[in-house]
Design a binder for these strands. Structure first.
Lengths: 148, 148
DNA sequence: ATCTTGCATCGACAGTTATCGATTCAGGCG
DNA sequence: CGCCTGAATCGATAACTGTCGATGCAAGAT
C-alpha cells in the first residue's frame, strides 16, 4: 500500500549499499504519497495515515532517542560515528544500537559503514515533513467559528 | 525549574475553572523557559529537555491519539465534544477517555466541562512549539553528507 | 429524590518496549 | 592465518502501555 512512499527515503541511503547494517529495511513513511502535506491540524487523519505517522512520533517518544537524534542532527554536516554516541549514554552498547535502529526504521536517520566504524546522519526530509505536519497552514482562519 | 513554563499553557485553560476534569494538572512542557527554540536539530538536548519533549512525542506516538488530535484540531474553532469523538473509534469509551487524558497531560489539548458534556480543544502553542523544534533554522547549510 | 446520560477513574490483563549479557558479524592488523 | 575492535543481532526479563468491563461522579430530566 505504501510502496512508492519509500522512494523518497530510499534515495538517501543509496550510498549505504556497502553498509552491512541492512539499511532501509523497514523505513516508515509519513504522509501518503498522494497528498504532500496532509496536515494533522487541518483535517482528520484516516487510519493509515495515523498509523504511519504514529510510528515516527513513537520513535521520537523516548528521551534517549531524542538525544541521539539531536546529537546527530546538530552536526550540520551530519555524520556522527556510533563510537561517539554510545559513550554519551549510561546505557549498554546494544541498547544504543537498538535505539539507533528504531530511529532508522522510522526514517529519521540513516547510516553507512565506513571501515570499522558506522556513521549516522539525519534524514532532513523527515523532520521537515514532521514540521510541516505540525504547522498550521498560514492564513488559517482564526478559530472563532467553532459551531460553524 | 519548569514553573513559569506552564504559564504559557495555563492561559489557554483559564476558562476551565469550572471544569471538573482537573485540567492542567500535569501538563508537560517542551522547551526550557530560558531558550525559546532550543532546536533539537541545532544542539544536543540535555536530559531534562529530552525527557520533557519525549513526553509530548510519546503522546503523539499512537494512531488513536493522532486521530483524536487531528479531529480536535481540524475544528478550526476548536471545540469538540467527547460525545462526537468516542463513536468515531472502535474502542470503548474508557479507552478513548484515557487517550484524551494523555493528550491533555502532554499539553496538546485542553478541556472544559459544559453542562453534561466535555469539550476539548487544541493547545496551539504546543504544536507550534513542536513545529519550531523540528524546523531547521533558516539558512542552515544543507547537509550534503546524506545526498552525496 | 430518583433516574438517566455523559464522562472519568479503577483494577486487571495482554501485548509491547527498554534494557541487559552473550553472541555474532564485519574489517583492520599482527 | 588468527586476533582485536566496533557495531549489530539474539534471548531473556522487567517495566510500561493499550484495552477492557465495572464502577463512580457530575449534571440535567422526570
Amino acid at each position: 500500500m505504501s510502496n512508492q512512499d519509500l522512494v523518497l527515503l530510499d534515495q538517501t541511503d543509496g550510498t549505504a549499499g556497502t553498509s552491512g547494517t541492512s539499511s532501509a529495511s523497514g523505513t516508515a513513511d509519513v504522509s501518503g504519497s498522494a497528498d504532500c502535506c496532509p496536515g494533522l491540524l487541518t483535517a482528520p487523519l484516516d487510519g493509515d495515515q495515523a498509523a504511519e505517522l504514529a510510528k515516527v512520533f513513537k520513535a521520537l517518544g523516548d528521551p534517549v532517542r531524542l538525544r541521539l537524534l539531536s546529537m546527530i542532527a546538530s552536526r550540520a554536516g551530519g555524520e556522527v560515528c556510533v563510537c561517539d554516541l554510545t559513550p554519551a549514554f549510561d546505557l549498554s552498547q546494544p541498547t544504543v544500537s537498538h535505539h539507533l535502529k528504531l530511529l532508522r526504521e522510522a526514517g529519521l536517520i540513516d547510516c553507512e559503514r565506513r571501515g570499522t566504524w558506522v556513521y549516522y546522519w539525519l534524514v532532513q526530509e523527515m523532520t521537515d515533513r514532521l514540521a510541516a505536519i505540525l504547522t498550521r497552514p498560514t492564513g488559517a482562519p482564526a478559530p472563532d467559528g467553532a459551531a460553524s
